[in-house]
């Protein structure tokens, strides 16, 4: 809430409220095709949440995005944005209200970075001064130096810089919904991780409702409040929070998709401070125990436990005060309790 308020105070933009997105039994069959590209897809993305769409190539991720902004017509079902059917809206107006980063970025090569970002504000008829201020603000927001970048052409940017400009362009008119189709697709792992971190930081600032497509389950786990896993034929296999998908995958397809190391990925999501630590009193040898910070991930803690030969770790807070002891049992407990919870559902 605080974050949203602070965003309101920023210069030329008044950050619009994020809008809830609801897909109701959405189906799509392209003309002349027998198979559905999307079949009976229903899911709700709460306002301000990031929904990551993952699934193998051809499972209908891009199709879903284009159904939402009406670049392609629905075969059946309905899509609601902020409680209102997108079918009731004029398609061009709707699209100016939805930030869309297409799979290949698609910057206009004949326009400068600044002009690219100004596209939708210009279509909406904003004043020149407001556009210029907004461009500046957005470049800073995506971590680019405005004075150095504004007048460059896309050909003069690196792949990562182009992706950032693509994101800034989609954010320009401050849309209540963002569609991002593999925005970090063509980036090397190091820069990709950096862009992901920046996205998480950015999303904390702007709090959009986001539909984010990726092939990469690790990226999905890192970015998503919720993950929607699609299988071939555009059928929803599971829609859940990352921890829930890792600890109880709905079926064989999902568990194969998230990988054999899903237990480790689940541990990576937890910090040791969040675990049910063993009270430090009454255990001998804690003085000599290896100390770990409370912010360490459970996965890294497991690694340390393995190296220490199973000797408990002493979890300490920022001031060095002991919070408790971490044993292998504590980690096992986290995984097995979630599994039990899953079975009881």
């Amino acid at each position: 809430m605080n974050r949203r308020d602070s965003a309101h105070n920023e210069g030329p933009s008044a950050f619009a409220q994020a809008a809830e997105l609801q897909l109701r039994s959405v189906s799509k069959r392209y003309p002349g095709q027998h198979e559905f590209a999307i079949e009976e897809l229903s899911l709700t993305v709460p306002a301000g949440d990031v929904c990551v769409l993952v699934g193998p190539s051809g499972s209908g991720k891009t199709t879903t995005m284009r159904l939402i902004n009406r670049m392609i017509p629905l075969t059946s079902g309905d899509i609601l944005l902020g409680g209102r059917s997108v079918l009731a809206r004029e398609p061009r107006q709707l699209r100016r209200d939805i930030g869309y980063v297409i799979q290949q970025v698609g910057l206009f090569p004949h326009q400068t970075v600044g002009q690219n970002i100004a596209t939708v504000p210009r279509l909406l008829g904003w004043q020149k001064g407001r556009i210029a201020a907004r461009v500046e603000e957005l470049l800073e927001l995506v971590g680019l130096d405005a004075s150095a970048m504004r007048d460059r052409y896309p050909a003069q940017l690196s792949g990562g810089q182009r992706q950032r400009v693509g994101v800034a362009r989609a954010l320009a008119a401050d849309p209540p919904l963002m569609l991002m189709d593999e925005p970090f697709g063509a980036i090397d792992p190091i820069n990709r991780a950096r862009l992901q971190d920046e996205f998480v930081r950015l999303q904390e600032k702007v709090r959009k409702t986001v539909v984010f497509v990726t092939h990469d389950i690790d990226e999905a786990i890192k970015m998503g409040d919720r993950i929607a896993i699609l299988r071939e034929g555009g059928v929803l296999a599971q829609y859940d929070a990352p921890a829930a998908i890792l600890s109880h995958p709905a079926d064989e397809f999902v568990s194969r998709f998230v990988g054999a190391d899903r237990a480790l990925k689940r541990l990576a999501l937890a910090r040791v401070a969040d675990l049910d630590l063993v009270a430090p009193n009454g255990l001998v040898g804690q003085r000599n125990a290896q100390r770990v910070s409370a912010t360490t991930s459970a996965r890294d803690a497991l690694s340390l436990l393995l190296v220490s030969g199973g000797e408990p770790l002493l979890v300490v807070d920022g001031e060095g005060r002991a919070e408790g002891l971490l044993t292998i049992d504590v980690l096992e407990q986290l995984l097995s309790s979630e599994a039990a919870e899953a079975r009881s559902r």
Partner: peptide, 18 residues
């Protein structure tokens, strides 16, 4: 004109004339 550029124009709500 690259297809993805036209796609982006379409996706941002430009009319055909625009």
């Amino acid at each position: 004109v690259p297809a993805e550029v036209m796609d982006a124009a379409d996706g941002m709500g430009m009319t055909r004339t625009q």
